[in-house]
Design a binder for these strands. Structure first.
Lengths: 147, 147
DNA sequence: CCCTTTCGTTTACAACTGTAATCTTAATTT
DNA sequence: AAATTAAGATTACAGTTGTAAACGAAAGGG
């Protein structure tokens, strides 16, 4: 029954809300609003809108608690992150993805464990890595290639 | 004078157009339309709109060639890729970025050179990598932490 | 010189986003 | 009980995006 965690699309502003709820595990609107008002120049009404949209999209679940709601994540944070990143990368030229990832890795702060995790993945790939990955920007039959 | 390559935002559909032009180096609308019609279910009019928007945004430059235009990229492909990926990653929890990158690396086809390039970056980072990267989803003063 | 094709521009239109005010209703306070 | 506050729902509104038709001008074919 694979949790109906179909591809919910979360907008940039909505990500901010999700991050709060993911981090706290659950939260009522007051908490979410208080925290976000500290991070952004958003009015309470704006945050309420975002929460509402996330509920409608199915990214947040609600549990009635007396007069108000408790919001909980309905989708997994790591999964959402992986998917968003993968989707972004997949729309770019296959030939340059590796370099893009290298550049991003370089700019990203990583813990020793992260680095180790990444090294492991790469070492495992080394064995079967192809000599090169072709550009996939043009239609199949087109023999043009990128430089 | 650093090419006025300020942050142009390219939408998903527009990326498809840019990829064609990046790959060919330059192209007239006929070429772009022909190639994209093979990859997508887009009408010529749709592609024209996308080209028009990219020109207006400054992502494509035009050179008059008789009656029509020759379009050339006004922004660098690799830079655009790096930036888009970085921007996406930066809006996610710092603590989980490493894992997200590992998952994406795993799914991405990489050439031997790519893998090597990535290994180099990581090995260089290993020395100074912190024991851990803290979650940055909550406001500063908030001592809550993710698990 | 007309007809047709082609190219770029203008207009269209709904969905999604960022940003927020207002309204309803229930709860809290005096 | 009356007044105030808080929570969620409704409405707003402009800009971006996906998707495309229509239009005007120029070029090419007869």
């Amino acid at each position: 029954m694979a949790a109906t965690e179909i591809a919910v699309t979360i907008s940039d502003a909505e990500w901010r809300v999700m991050r709060i709820v993911w981090t706290l595990g659950q939260a009522d609107s007051r908490t979410i609003i208080d925290l976000l008002e500290q991070q952004h120049d958003w009015k309470a009404a704006t945050i309420k809108t975002l929460i509402g949209r996330l509920v409608k999209k199915g990214a947040l679940a609600t549990t009635k608690d007396g007069r108000q709601f408790i919001y909980t994540p309905n989708i997994d944070e790591q999964t959402a992150m992986d998917t968003a990143l993968q989707t972004e990368l997949d729309q770019m030229c296959a030939m340059h993805r590796g370099t893009a990832l290298a550049h991003v890795l370089e700019q990203t702060e990583l813990s020793r464990n992260d680095v180790q995790e990444l090294l492991d993945v790469l070492n495992k790939k080394l064995a079967t890595a192809p000599a090169e990955v072709a550009c996939d920007c043009l239609p199949e039959n087109c023999e043009r290639s990128c430089e």
